[in-house]
């Protein structure tokens, strides 16, 4: 306990934004309840809720940014932000854990149970296999499985992720050469992954995109630590671009799935898990991309210094989290 003993912890003034946020969530909750029950007012109330939410986000984050830029946050506040971002990401991990657990359960327990010997009493003739839309499936569909050289892909994905993780070491120590080698190798793996393209190219491309975005993001981080704002902006923008292309690919994938594979949200438990998992992931990519965009805008208007840029780091943590979730998704949803 050193600096903080004298440092006065910043406690914000009373604020109107939380209650605005609450009003927005009340509207969203009510609106959504109405909407899913086909009440005419539903979409309108929901839209209003979103509008209020946007207003609140702008106001609240605006206040935080102002406070930060006017130097109100000391070291202690900074470490508070670090703790909180870490725990927040942990809560997100647990949210995804619920769905990964679900996928595991249906594949390992419920579908095999339904196709088992006793299961035949209820569902005569049903054969357990994955992908499955269950014993009562009415329409045929094709799955999104990536039928490529799966082992190679898993190894490549893990290697690339490991590379990236290790790249942090040289970065912390400021060893430019090593860092560049690490990042270069990651990119190489990404290219290899691309080269092993097979029938369903979207998930592979997407994996490559996100891995590449992790590289550019780390590069951006490294740039700001060197105080090189121009390069920081460039690589941040590149990361954002990769993220947006990812989302574009995902939209394409969904369209393709609906129109050509007849794979829908209602395609039994395969469709349900596929869309819920990739969908929630896509939502998180969107949120991460918005964060990065805000960081880019802030950097362009002169925020962040080479020593103080936690907001950016938080966004980067979030992006890496989204990245790792994708890698896991890629393996368990598409490959296995």
């Amino acid at each position: 306990m050193n600096a903080q003993t004298i440092e006065k912890y910043f406690v914000p003034e009373p604020s109107i934004y939380p209650i605005i946020g609450s009003i927005s969530l009340l509207l969203l909750g009510t609106g959504a309840s109405f909407w899913v029950n086909s009440l005419a007012a539903g979409p309108w109330i929901t839209a209003l809720g979103f509008a209020v939410l946007l207003y609140m986000l702008f106001g609240w984050f605006g206040a935080v940014i102002r406070e930060s830029e006017t130097g109100k946050y000391g070291k202690n506040v900074d470490s508070a932000f670090r703790w909180s971002m870490g725990w927040f990401i942990f809560s997100e991990v647990m949210f995804f854990a619920a769905f990964f657990g679900t996928l595991f359960y249906v594949r390992v327990i419920s579908v095999p149970d339904l196709g088992s010997e006793v299961g035949q009493i209820f569902w005569p003739g049903f054969k357990a296999a994955w992908p499955s839309a269950g014993p009562h499936a009415t329409e045929a569909f094709e799955s999104m499985t990536w039928v490529g050289k799966s082992t190679l892909a898993i190894v490549a994905v893990i290697a690339a992720a490991a590379m990236l993780t290790f790249a942090h070491g040289p970065m912390e120590k400021g060893k430019k050469g090593q860092l560049q080698i690490m990042l270069g190798l990651t990119l190489l793996i990404v290219v290899l992954l691309l080269a092993s393209l097979s029938v369903s190219w979207v998930p592979v491309i997407n994996t490559a995109l996100l891995l590449a975005s992790a590289v550019t993001l780390t590069w951006a981080h490294w740039s700001i630590r060197q105080g090189n704002r121009g390069q920081f902006n460039l690589f941040l923008a590149l990361t954002l671009l990769l993220g947006v292309v990812f989302l574009g690919c995902q939209v394409y994938e969904y369209v393709h799935a609906y129109s050509e594979l007849n794979l829908k949200l209602t395609s039994g438990v395969y469709g349900a898990t596929f869309y819920m998992m990739t969908g929630f992931h896509g939502l998180h990519v969107t949120i991460g991309a918005i964060m990065l965009a805000v960081m880019l805008a802030r950097s362009l208007s002169g925020h962040f210094t080479k020593d103080r840029h936690f907001a950016f780091e938080a966004a980067a943590w979030y992006w890496h989290f989204v990245d790792y979730v994708w890698l896991l998704l890629f393996v368990v949803v598409y490959i296995l």
Partner: peptide, 13 residues
């Protein structure tokens, strides 16, 4: 939304 997480007919439980 027609998912079948908890419905055996669609492979859920």
């Amino acid at each position: 939304f027609g998912t079948t997480f908890f419905n055996a007919a669609g492979g859920g439980d």
